[in-house]
């Protein structure tokens, strides 16, 4: 927006673009609570959302053509029925290699205002992120040169790139732009809790009690990192050490910044769609929501970089009763959005 205004000064040296092919704009479908409560989504000025771009990105996301041996697509580790993460603790790459991080759900990514992606924030921007899995040896293990060649010699892709970007010469930047456009359409904002906030549904007393526990500094105290009724993202997208380990092996953000004070910090995940996204945490160590709640209630491990908000560290956690745990779980589950995972626009088009 700012850039656009700055260029308009005096109207003398306007850049006149040749009359080229223009794809059809496709504005994001922004849920009412997002529009009302938080800042606009981040859409890079050089990658506007278009009908053709999103359709191409969706096709690429589901197409194993991007992988080294043509056997793996993004969707293998980011499946719609799992809110675009992987039900396995560690995903298996094309060579059978297993990583040490749990896959991450993909939704509401356009509202990650800092644009730091991955558990440790090592990629900037969704376009930048999409470069990684294709060439990662333990994931799709391809080279971009090779991936480009496969797409260029395909019967459909050159045409689809022309429709999306006005050129049939395919390069990695256009591939990642298309994928990012598709990813930005993956918006989840219609859970039971959203409907409760919109006044179209009444939650159970247990769910409401669970929300109070989530918001109560003397009980769960989860809201400082995982959003609140005025932040429909249900994450701060900031990096914290939430007390998983006394001895930290995967240093997370610390490896990216080189600052030991960041060791053991990972990005707070959104707590939307937990019903579909097990297992939990950066290494998928918890198979159930109960295990996650037990962790915060009595399983905290102290380490030098633990977040001060893990305040009950001296007693191992916030010490919830069984009833409180059940209520908290009921609230967390009320943020699951089955309309999102079943949205026909998000399924495999191939």
């Amino acid at each position: 927006m700012v850039v656009g205004f700055l260029f308009s000064s005096c109207g003398e040296n306007e850049i006149v673009l040749p009359n080229t092919y223009e794809p059809t704009p496709l504005p994001l479908k922004i849920p009412p609570l997002f529009a009302e409560k938080i800042l606009d989504p981040v859409i890079p000025f050089n990658n506007p959302q278009t009908v053709e771009g999103v359709a191409l990105g969706r096709k690429l996301f589901y197409d194993p053509i991007l992988s080294g041996d043509g056997s793996q697509s993004c969707s293998d580790c980011h499946a719609p029925e799992n809110a675009f993460t992987d039900a396995d603790r560690f995903s298996v790459g094309i060579d059978g290699d297993i990583g040490n991080r749990n896959s991450m759900p993909i939704f509401n990514q356009a509202w990650n205002y800092d644009e730091n992606f991955f558990w440790d924030g090592r990629s900037f921007g969704l376009e930048g992120q999409a470069l990684e899995p294709v060439k990662n040896p333990i994931e799709m293990h391809n080279t971009w040169v090779n991936a480009m060649a496969s797409l260029q010699s395909h019967t459909d892709y050159p045409d689809l790139f022309f429709q999306a970007f006005g050129t049939s010469t395919i390069d990695s930047s256009l591939v990642t732009k298309a994928i990012a456009q598709f990813e930005r359409t993956l918006i989840s904002g219609n859970s039971r809790f959203d409907k409760h906030l919109l006044g179209t549904l009444t939650l159970t007393p247990q769910e409401l009690n669970g929300f109070d526990i989530f918001m109560d500094e003397t009980k769960g105290d989860c809201f400082h990192c995982h959003g609140n009724a005025n932040n429909p993202l249900w994450t701060d997208n900031i990096f914290h050490n939430n007390g998983l380990d006394a001895v930290i092996t995967d240093i997370g953000l610390g490896a990216v910044t080189g600052n030991p004070a960041d060791n053991g910090k990972f990005k707070s995940p959104s707590i939307r769609n937990l019903q579909f996204t097990a297992p939990y945490m950066h290494d998928g160590r918890f198979a159930t929501i109960d295990e996650v709640i037990n962790h915060y209630s009595e399983g905290l491990q102290n380490s030098p970089t633990i977040d001060p908000l893990m305040k009950a560290i001296a007693t191992g956690g916030v010490q919830l009763t069984n009833d409180e745990k059940e209520a908290l779980k009921a609230f967390l589950l009320s943020l699951s959005d089955s309309e999102f995972i079943n949205n026909p626009n998000f399924q495999n088009p191939n």
């Binding site: 409560k37 800042l39 509202w111 918001m215 500094e217 809201f223 609140n228 009724a229 005025n230």
Partner: peptide
């Protein structure tokens, strides 16, 4: 409560119960 979208986006809210 909830009036400022940039402050909401920063999770700067103070709980309603307080």
């Amino acid at each position: 409560d909830g009036f400022y979208s940039d402050l909401n986006a920063a999770s700067w809210n103070w709980p309603e119960m307080l």
